[in-house]
Design a protein around this nucleic acid. Structure first.
Lengths: 349, 349
DNA sequence: TATAGTTGTGTAAACGCTTACACGGTAAAC
DNA sequence: GTTTACCGTGTAAGCGTTTACACAACTATA
């Protein structure tokens, strides 16, 4: 004969729940739930009553409850190295917009190029029950992919493409891109080429670009000497310093190929400081095509990468997977070579 | 005599839950829960068994369950207008890092400067049960703030500051900042000043800056004529076009004050295109101090805003509130005026 | 008129956690 | 040797949803 009486056991105030709405409208919670998902599934009479009750109570459904019961959170995760690089912030923005239009919300984390941190963040995302996950690059330990496997959620790796990639991917071949750049650079008469790049050990895209450079040079009977490579952080100043280091050693290159536009801009500034004429004495090539590239003086030659397209394609792939639609899991996007004034023929000595 | 037997009613496979771990370790779910939160609260023997079971089963706790039971999601939301503007991406990045270090995860949305969209996104965030929320600016309908009030979660508005702000805020006074800029501009001899700015109707910061400009001019007996203002989208090209419009009308200004660095960069490019010498014939002032400002030619004068600091302070405020610590809810950050080569004395005719 | 669908609704179990409360066992205090 | 306190653990209710199932009230069909 135990009379169950509800005691507020917590200090925190109970919020308005579906059962309150149901009570107020004089219907069952099931009906309210059905109304929330598709108002047309309930009778007009009931519809009005529920609608009124919801308004009256300022009811806001709680998705944690839904997530638990329906086993989907309507949250999608993304982990990118940083938002300071515009290529990623652009990608994330587009990604988010596409998710939102499909009713999903974005859970975002940055890895700061730290694999361990990336792993921890991915775990947290799984704890939050993300329905899908977007990542950057593919280089990570097997335990990472095993974890994703166990969670059995769709995921995609971005800024990377290979037609026989094991994992879903969306991007382009950095190796091929850079090879084509260097092919053309050599064609323009450059033989002494310097490289300013990010650190290859933490980043598979950097490594792939270097590989492309080496490959192109080799085909032309050239070689990339160790002292022609300057590794650098992704900042303007570091880019400038990298050029400085390159200039200290041996004969001055006639062309500098950079890992991204930030570095290239730094190189440009440093060259100006040193009164080295670009492109007459030194040609400079960027990578990525940030919006600023065309605003620099001289306008920077670079490789245009479709940041927004990658974000959108990644979202589309994941949404398709979630909806059970079959889609291509290896998506190649187009890049475009933008030859602007910062790059010219090799100066004849 | 109804024997309850568990039937898998769903196609989706049940994931490993706390009760599985409890069963495997031969303890109660309560103990597992206690272990998860503070391993030292359970005996060593139990600790080992639970630990083993967790590893064995690859148990990943499900935060939706926790959120429901404990009434906190460990998620914090942020809504910014866009990530394309580096000031916001920088802010968001720092915000996220600080949250992460405190065990929270970031739910991110963009409003695209659309109040209605911002409202919808905020609602979704509340549905997701965010524990706190970061916003940009203060201009929004009362129903927005009422909704937050009802949810009774801490929130903060950023990029805005006033010592008698109703809402918690973190930023600086755009009005004062711009007034000081223009005070100095006038001091440098400029009388004919053009303004290139974003659209004021959607954005309280833009409006405040314009107010500051007007105030400064008025104090010096000057007035901002309508045909000296060019409204523009936040892109390089639009900034250039805005300058073009300004130049079409009346006497050419000796100085252009811009609402942000993107616009200023566009102005710089357009001036170069037109062979207008900066700063000899035309001085240009930006706002915000993006990293690129110093890389432009000539280096852009601008107002340095502490993007990262705002993100961090916002996170700190919210985390303090969540922890029940008292903190200042109106946070003013410092700005700095960077006078570089793009700005000089007014040319004497 | 009897039968088979169809439609709309309610009931109640489940989702994976947390936590108030109860309880037994050991240690400390008397 | 009793009393008191504390500590570690288990029990079970509850957090706010969804959804399988049952069932009643219709409508269409034979």
């Amino acid at each position: 004969m135990a009379v169950k009486h509800r005691v507020s056991r917590r200090s925190r105030s109970r919020s308005v729940g579906i059962s309150d709405v149901a009570a107020a409208a004089g219907v069952s919670t099931a009906s309210v739930s059905r109304f929330m998902h598709d108002p047309m599934r309930v009778s007009p009479k009931l519809r009005d009553r529920v609608e009124a009750a919801i308004k009256e109570l300022n009811y806001i459904p709680h998705r944690a409850g839904r997530a638990l019961a329906s086993r989907q959170s309507l949250i999608v995760g993304a982990i990118v190295p940083t938002l300071e690089n515009a290529i990623f912030s652009r990608q994330v923005m587009t990604f988010q917009q596409n998710l939102r239009d499909a009713g999903y919300t974005l859970l975002l984390a940055t890895s700061e190029y730290d694999p361990e941190l990336e792993f921890r963040q991915a775990r947290v995302m799984l704890e939050h029950g993300v329905d899908a996950l977007m990542l950057v690059g593919q280089k990570r330990g097997s335990e990472f992919y095993e974890m994703l496997e166990r969670a059995s959620i769709p995921f995609i790796t971005t800024w990377i493409y290979s037609k026989n990639s094991i994992h879903p991917c969306c991007g382009f071949s950095h190796e091929t891109a850079m090879k084509r750049v260097v092919d053309y650079v050599v064609e323009l008469g450059h033989r002494n080429i310097g490289v300013v790049t990010g650190f290859a050990n933490v980043n598979d895209r950097v490594a792939a670009r270097l590989k492309g450079i080496r490959k192109a040079l080799k085909e032309h009977g050239l070689e990339l000497m160790r002292d022609k490579i300057a590794y650098s952080e992704y900042t303007f100043d570091a880019g400038g310093e990298a050029l400085a280091r390159l200039l200290e050693k041996g004969e001055r290159p006639t062309a500098i190929v950079c890992g991204n536009d930030i570095l290239a801009a730094g190189v440009l500034t440093e060259a100006r400081k040193r009164n080295i004429k670009v492109p007459e004495e030194l040609s400079v090539m960027g990578f990525g095509d940030l919006d600023i590239a065309a605003q620099l003086d001289p306008p920077l030659s670079t490789v245009r990468t479709p940041k927004a397209e990658i974000g959108e394609a990644a979202a589309t792939y994941l949404l398709n997977s979630l909806a059970g639609r079959k889609t291509e899991s290896r998506i190649e996007v187009d890049i475009k070579f933008c030859w602007r004034d910062s790059f010219g023929r090799a100066s004849k000595k």
